[in-house]
Design a protein around this nucleic acid. Structure first.
Length: 265
DNA sequence: CTTATCGGCCA
DNA sequence: TGGCCGATAAG
């Protein structure tokens, strides 16, 4: 039968859409819509698609059946930003359509962006040292609770472990929120990450919190720990390099390297 | 075993 | 109803 996979402009390049009409049974005539990733994996529902695309694409306005973005079709969802303890405990899942404030590039670190204008005088914006960080909600990190990373087959990856002795501050000092807070700080801050240095913040974080720092007590990183970490990274890169060399892609690994030091005091 | 297809639950 | 996903038949 006619297996027509059409391009889907609303999705990243390479994604295909297919609609098949049921030709027998009680539901004959009904149609099912499928999507195919650039690698050929089949998707048969919007939640499944959202899990896979994660924050790379915001599917809030995406109509799965038609394959088009429908502005104003913001899903009559009154309040869908309730992934707090209550809704999660009730069995609610985190909103997978929500885009996190995380840059979607290969590197998690800030990097210059090439602005392509018409032609002449293309300039590279060397991240203007913003004088003030934009305002953020107090304890906004709590919204990141419950997020899990998973691989392309949707298997949930094991959670990262935090070093012993790292202590959270503020409401809900669970480990996953703490991890999110520190990871976010590393993403977004251009200054060293020290944790909360004011002792007062431990007693009343609502007042004394340094919002430029993650929600944890101050910590120190020893040279020894840095050396250990560098060794881990070095070894991981060796493994990656060998794997890529087998594919003749070693140069790609070289070019994607990122400075090792420079974060944390 | 993997994949295609329809049933059927649930909002 | 239509979306979503389990069941089951088909390869």
């Amino acid at each position: 039968m006619e297996r027509k996979r059409t391009d889907c402009p609303a999705l990243p390049p390479g994604w295909k859409k297919e609609e098949v009409i049921r030709k027998s049974g009680l539901s004959a005539g009904k149609s099912d819509v499928y999507y195919y990733s650039p690698t050929g994996k089949k998707f048969r529902s919007k939640p499944q698609l959202a899990r896979y695309l994660g924050n790379a694409v915001d599917l809030a306005c995406f109509d799965f059946r038609t394959g088009k973005m429908m502005p104003g079709k913001l899903q009559k969802n009154k309040q869908k930003f309730r992934h707090d303890a209550l809704s999660l405990a009730k069995g609610g899942k985190p909103d997978l359509n929500t885009a996190l404030p995380i840059r979607q590039t290969a590197s998690i670190f800030k990097q210059p962006v090439t602005k392509v204008t018409s032609h002449p005088g293309n300039k590279v914006k060397t991240d203007l040292q913003r004088a003030v960080e934009p305002p953020r909600q107090l304890f906004w990190e709590r919204r990141l609770r419950g997020l899990r990373s998973s691989d392309v087959s949707e298997e949930v990856l094991h959670a990262m472990e935090l070093p012993k002795g790292l202590q959270g501050i503020g409401p809900d000092s669970s480990d996953d929120v703490l991890l999110s807070a520190i990871a976010s700080a590393l993403h977004m801050s251009s200054t060293p990450i020290t944790g909360q240095t004011s002792v007062a913040a431990e007693k009343n974080p609502t007042i004394w919190l340094n919002t430029a720092q993650p929600l944890c007590k101050s910590f120190t990183v020893t040279d020894e720990q840095i050396r250990e970490q560098e060794l881990k990274v070095y070894q991981a890169r060796r493994v990656l390099e060998e794997a890529l060399t087998a594919d003749g892609l070693a140069r790609a690994a070289e070019n994607s390297r990122v400075p090792l030091r420079g974060k944390t005091a």
